[in-house]
């Protein structure tokens, strides 16, 4: 199944997976999707624990998708695909966590407001 990948060098690994990688990826994603939905819909854990679990499962599922479906690895395109992905992930984390961090502190330093009314002008 993986024989053509080897004979044709580094390139095909980028876009051609084997049936096995697709099926493994699909099975893992199905589990990694079902568990967080189940956790939230049943409320099996505390709200905080559910939150952390859901985020961890999402990160795991994103990794499964990038390796099994998008076929990102260190060999594809001489490593440039991986470098571009890592770079994007870093910028993405800085943008999202930076925005949340700054805006959270901005909110904390504003005049006290009642819960839920933060968006309205006064």
């Amino acid at each position: 199944m993986s024989a053509p990948d080897i004979t044709r060098g580094t390139a095909p690994a980028h876009s051609h997976g084997s049936r096995k990688t697709y099926l493994i990826g699909f099975a893992l994603s199905a589990i990694l999707t079902a568990v967080p939905f189940w956790l939230v819909m049943t409320g099996a854990l505390s709200a905080q624990a559910t939150g952390y679990a859901v985020i961890a499962l999402a990160v795991a599922q994103i990794l499964v998708h990038t390796t099994c479906f998008l076929h990102v690895n260190r060999r594809a395109e001489g490593g440039w695909t991986m470098i571009a992905l890592v770079f994007t992930a870093v910028i993405l984390l800085i943008t999202i966590s930076g925005s949340l961090w700054i805006m959270y502190h901005l909110n904390s330093n504003m005049m006290p407001m009642d819960a839920g009314g933060g968006g309205e002008l006064r």
């Binding site: 571009a84 992905l85 770079f87 994007t88 910028i91 993405l92 943008t95 999202i96 930076g98 925005s99 949340l100 805006m103 839920g116 009314g117 933060g118 968006g119 309205e120």
Partner: peptide, 23 residues
């Protein structure tokens, strides 16, 4: 990857405004 950055800004915006229900 550049498209992912567009989504990153939209996720960041949503993250900041997610509890601003305005009643």
């Amino acid at each position: 990857m550049s498209d992912a950055l567009i989504f990153a800004t939209l996720f960041a915006t949503f993250g900041v405004l997610r509890q601003n229900y305005a009643g």
